[in-house]
Amino acid sequence: MVMTEEQARVRQQTKRILNRFGRRRGNLVPILQKVQGEIGYLPREAMLEIAEFLDMPEIDVYGVVTFYNQFRLNPPGKHSVRVCLGTACHMKGGYITLDAWKRRLGIDRGQTSPDREFDLDTVACVGCCVMAPVTVVDDKPQGKVAPTKVDGILLSFKLEKERQGEESR
């Protein structure tokens, strides 16, 4: 099979990251975290490269990747939206917040919007229970996110984008 340019690039990038690690199975999770941190997700080629490096069956890398919540198999959006569904958030309407995000972004949890602007997911608990319901937007926890605040957050991104568009013009 001929490797596409993209696949070759992923292989190279993964190899560079692997150089910093020892060939111990115990390094698998830290390696996956590092690769995802740099590439944004875990492409097939990266997983194959890792399996080869650690001399383990490819399926086992895949098994670990699909087991843990942290790892993703698809490219993320520009902005990440993580709706907290911890107990306190749930009881204060976290599921309503999630619905609002789904409705506005037109995607389900675990998906990326077609324009690659946002990806939506849930998180079990970010430990900010007193600010419930919480949504973590681009690593910043936002407290008391009611459906109207969802609209507010999206509007601020839109304005930001328009402003940047004007500046670049």
Binding site: M47, P57, V61, Y62
Partner: peptide
């Protein structure tokens, strides 16, 4: 895996979704 040393099949996903599968399903 153990008897034949091939390792094509394995478990992936979690909970109710857990499945015996190959790399990348």
């Amino acid at each position: 895996r153990e008897r034949l040393g091939i390792g094509v099949l394995g478990f992936a996903h979690r909970g109710f979704e857990r499945v015996v599968t190959t790399f990348g399903d």
